[in-house]
Amino acid sequence: MIEIQEVSMVYPNGVNALKQVDMCVERGDFVFVVGESGAGKSTLIRLICREYLPSKGSIKIHGRDITRLRRWEVPMLRRNIGVVFQDFRLLNNRTVFENVAFAMQVIGSSGRDIRRRVPEALELVGLSDKAKMKPLELSGGEQQRVCLARAIVNQPLLIIADEPTGNLDPKTAMGIMDALKNINIRGTTVIMATHAKEIVDTMRQRVVVLGGGRIVRDERRGEYSHHGC
């Protein structure tokens, strides 16, 4: 589903964040991207949702090279990718329901679809009873669930999460991981960058280890596998 081929990323300031990265993700995969700070995890995530263009190489999603999209095609790509951030990025003056509905509204969904799918998404992340509350009335874990609901409400093929548990205590973090696993089981591909060793160890999923901008290890459910496609 995702083919990353010989991707290098040099930022305008000269930092070489990724060097010749090859990586393949199958549909329905759950992939952790780990590595020390500055290894290039966030950069990789940003390239996949086409926040930046790589300096070299190609990134194919469903066979389509997203580094060659036209400007107006980028939003169409994003509709198929749900993004979750470490710092939530919710609209604090709107309710939980409105925050999730916002993602549907701005791509032109009908009120009927919104009323049907937002509660479904909230139920999936276990927040049905908090729909009318504002983000600042929620705990960190609950806020991150709202983000998760917002990321899945448009039924994307892929969820990418950059340290979604970074601001949460371990127990709350596991709750988020359960929700993510739930989403993954329903067929959505998940790519998640994280520092949290305990999470990676308990989840027993594929782990891609970045070091100094290169893939230094790629383990599939405990066993070593060849990276690349």
């Binding site: 949702c49 939003p75 994003r78 509709r79 701005v106």
Partner: peptide, 9 residues
């Protein structure tokens, strides 16, 4: 947020 969820320009 609009950009991330795919709102057109």
């Amino acid at each position: 947020i609009m950009k991330y969820v795919g709102a057109t320009e």
